[in-house]
Design a binder for these strands. Sequence first.
RNA 1: GCUGGUGUGGCGGAAUGGCAGACGCACGGGACUUAAAAUCCCGAGGUGGCAACACCGUGUGGGUUCGACUCCCACCACCAGCACCA
Length: 807
Amino acid sequence: MNYNYKEIEKKWQDRWYKEKSFKAIDFHPTKPKYYVLYEFYNISGNLHMGHMKGTIPADALARFKRFKGYNVLFPIGGDAFGLPAENAAIKTGIDPHEFVSNGLNNVLEQSRQLGLSFDWDRTICTSDPEYYKWTQWIFLQLFKHGKAYKEKSKVNFCPHCQTVLSNEDSQGGKCDRCGNDVVQEVRWSWFLKMREYAEKLLGNIDRINMAENLKEAQRNWIGRSEGTQIKFAIYNDKEEKVGDLEIFTTCVETVYGITYVALAPENSLVDKLKPYIKNWKDVEDYRKKTALRTELDRLSDQKDKTGARLEGLYVVNPVNNKKVPMFIADFVLNGYATGAVMAVPSHDQRDYEFAEKFNIPKIQIIEGDTSKCAVEKKEYLSKNSKMINSAEFSGMPVKEAKKKIAQKLIDMGVAEIKVNYKMTDWAFNRQRYWGEPFPIVLCSHCGEVALDEKDLPLVLPKVKDYMPNEKGDSPLSKAKDWVECKCPKCGRPAKRETDTMPNWAGSSWYWLRYADPHNDKAIADYEKLKYWGSVDCYTGGTEHITRHVLYAFFWQNFLYEIGAVPTRDPFVRKMGSGLILDSEGKKMSKSSANGVSPLEVIDKYGTDVARMHVHFLGGYEDNTPWTYDGINGITSFIDRVWSLQDMVKGEGVSKEHIYELSVLNKKLCDDYENLKLNTAISALMTFVKKIKEDGFITKEELRQFLIFLNPLAPHITSEMYERVFNAQILDQSWPDYDEKNLIKSSVEIAVQVNSKIIAKANIDTSLNKEEILSQVKEEDKVKELLNGKTIVKEIYVPNRLVNLIVK
RNA sequence: GCUGGUGUGGCGGAAUGGCAGACGCACGGGACUUAAAAUCCCGAGGUGGCAACACCGUGUGGGUUCGACUCCCACCACCAGCACCA
């Protein structure tokens, strides 16, 4: 009888859905909880191979844990705000609400076809008012606790999308969404005080179980650096002190080599010093020129340094009272530290290049050859070179001088130890329609006023025109009836904030909502949050992982601190799935010509085969090229499994198979836990091979085998279980195995003399070392080699090998 | 440039410091068949040899060890992230 996958897979998918087979139970009286999360779907169209790669291991883990007696929460939802819906609206006029509702139904239906064991009753969608009510609520809490503020400042702005972008959204000076150049614009913008959380986020990173490269990317993003902040007095040309310049440095050892200081062109100190600057016209010209350059421009010509001298001003180096000229230069970033640098051309290549261009002298203060380029930190620290030209520190090893010079400056009262971060506050508003409206009213009398919590959700009004206006204001500004309102504080006429929140907002807390998705009193019931706790295993792609996880950490920390959630760590473990690559080794996407849809594979081969094939190609976190090659091997494996029904002989576990069955059990426990589906599949194949060789399988062996295979191939195993045992496989629990059955009664070991294999020996595993050694020494080949020699060492590795070292 | 990761047959890929190449694909041979497909069995890292067997083999070069794909040092290549961060 052939296996009809089309009919049988449909039968089980429908039954699981109808019977709510994978419902997670709040406060289960006996079972411990286990929370498996797959990154919710970005609603844009159909599921693709990446989803197949990401969801199946999570599903297998969820199914495995249920057999192991856990109360498993495995939910899914839609990340619906953002560009796909908004672009479709602009392009085709389709209402984003409709786009999202169709799209979500579509991907949920496709998820069923993948056999995913989600709890469908917990499905959420970020663009539903019942959901974004709570996104708005979280924003209100941030606002009330002083963690959200509106400020006029220079932000990344994409002229094409007409919207503000966070630093994270505009890496490399390109808009993350449309790829066009991003410019710097001064605008009123909302910020969240994420920088304040830098140390806490670093703590989250240390605690989470996640691949090292992903952790490093996050630490790098936060960009913590420790150093010394030094205060330099500023003087005008009449030798009058006119201010102070604070400069952060990680190379305090080089202070004796300072020959100029440079400020970011935008640094507000420059405006304050305007009266003393003799060449204001030049300075102003330079500032205008740099303001026009895009971020990308500024970054692209790192070799060509530009700047302007602030004539009439200088600072005094506190260690030697030397006068040091001041410049502005666009290589100095206004957003980092104090927006100013102390330049030591002899020991920093960037300072060296600027000095060459502007004919500034160089003072070498650490040994080395500085004739052609700077001797930088990496080099002089690794050699622990000696100081020169540095007053009382000359001759001292640089590592020692570093500490002493810092101390001297601190003792002088002009410096302090300081920590800086690259990460900035989170620019949190966008000029887009399809996002969460801010629950904020702008009142000319009271300023920014929060809506009352009872007035949430503030529902996004329906509009016809999805484009920003010519001033770059959000599309919502055109919805006059909605914008005009009364100030909740003073009752005067006021206007709503018309910007919306970024796409990241809804995804920065969604795992919490699954604990209690229909609650209209709180983001989720506190006791339920306590019960479900942190996500035990969180899977998903790696594309936006750095940002997403950092935002998640940030909000969870904040919610924890205001008492809304019981834990500081959202996730115990995060796995980033590798990519499915096309035949050219590029990421497979819908747009790539040879993108293969999972539904196509399912249609041709069946869901169970598709699930196994994708994961037999490689490990979860590895990129794997897609190919149909090899899928026949999986199909024939599934056919062989089906044919096991006709080979049943006997009841309990046979002595012929007890060892193989126990080894398989143990291997699968490890592999499912670690999402190593490729080796799990090979272990299952090896077992079937053995059964085929022996020509029989007992009833109990088949029963256990079906449970073992179920997490990977849920359909065929459910069907066979019902046929052979007249019971439901989902009601079963994972079989136990006895450790003692993991050892065979006899085993072949390698026999080595002087670490070279010279023979194989069958040994009885109950024998001890001495007995085995004497048995081995009786082998002809061994005797021959031992003849006339002395054994100096005997090594025995149980069940593996014997190694005799002779002289 | 910096940081992290990865380098194993024709291919995808396995190996708690202990018999490298499991499992699978593709390949070769055989059985069944009028024939083919399907299925089943056997073979297979490389070089030499009819063979037993010998030698060489996990990016390169060193080291530690009785023993190294695995640990250490240096280098090379590829992938990813960051990149004028003071």
